[in-house]
Computed example of a mutant assay.
Amino acid sequence: MSEHRLRYVALGDSFTEGVGDPNKHLPNGVRGWADRVAEKLAKDQPGWEYANLAVRSKRLRHIAAEQLERAVDLRPTLITLYAGGNDILDAGTSVPQLLADYEELVAPLAATGARVLLFTGYDVNVTPALRLLRKRHQLYNDGVRRIADAYGAVLVDYWAFSAYQDRRMWGPDRLHMSKAGHKYMASQVLDLLGVPHSVKLKDWDPPVPKTFREWEREQRRWIHDWVLPLAGRKIRRVTLGDNLPPRWPIPVVVPPKGGLRRLVRDEGLPTATPGP
């Protein structure tokens, strides 16, 4: 294998898989910030390979069990890891234990010699009930910052990105970034990597205030479409990631022109969108 091989491997859950950024032409029906980063890397320096092992709904223990060994075996030169966000939302999660498990996940990734990027979590303002999780998020993020410093990783401080205070950066479920949110995240990662790009935050008009009736209708729709199905899955102990494969399990050479969509078209790769 060439010593000059450039290989980017992404690990994680729905955040890294690309949920919230729909694209029917790509595997699992989504695109996401990691795909966008891979394409800009290849455009800047042709020859980059890309694997994305992330699967929606995965907890940190799943990422460690299902993605870690594979990632190390791929001998990457660049790694991104986002893990723990789903654990934070689970009742009874011990943040100190979660951080201990997180460090055990980071250590072998850092030992590969690859450049490692770690992410803090964002304080998603979904509903007042979830504000109770803010302290848990803060403790987790402080731990991620400490671990990034200890292992020489690059920190992507998602928590500090004020752009995500705009609700248009979020999808209809209010938990996953929208297409605009994924684009902006890609720009932040590329800036940290020193890769040139033209990705910019969308210049929106100020949001139009909603009437109480509009707000109430929106709340009822959100509860019906997203909250109740999520509660039902928790009761049944199933997730949207069950039996769902990673989007890019085998490294692919990203075309400098046309990107991953061109690769899918030329190689005839599957693009089926998972059901709800």
Score class of each variant (00 low, 15 high):
A42D: 00
D44S: 14
Q45S: 13
P46T: 12
A54H: 02
S57A: 15
K58H: 15
R59P: 00
R61F: 09
R61D: 14
H62E: 15
H62K: 14
I63G: 02
E66Y: 13
L68G: 08
R70N: 08
R70F: 01
L74T: 06
L74A: 11
L74D: 08
L74W: 07
R75H: 14
T77G: 01
T77A: 07
I79P: 02
A83P: 01
A83F: 03
G85M: 02
L89A: 14
A91F: 01
A91H: 06
S94L: 11
V95S: 02
E103P: 06
L105Q: 02
A107Y: 12
P108L: 11
A110M: 12
A111R: 13
A111E: 13
A111M: 04
A111C: 07
G113K: 09
A114M: 07
A114D: 03
R115S: 10
R115E: 10
R115Y: 05
Y122T: 04
D123Y: 15
V124K: 13
T127N: 15
A129N: 07
L130S: 08
K135W: 10
R136A: 03
H137Y: 15
Q138C: 04
Q138S: 12
Y140M: 13
D142S: 07
G143L: 07
G143R: 03
V144T: 12
V144Q: 07
I147K: 00
I147G: 00
V154P: 04
V154L: 11
L155N: 01
D157I: 03
W159N: 10
Q165K: 14
R168D: 04
D173A: 09
D173H: 05
R174W: 12
H176M: 07
S178M: 04
K179H: 06
K179M: 06
K179P: 01
K179S: 04
A180N: 08
H182I: 01
K183G: 04
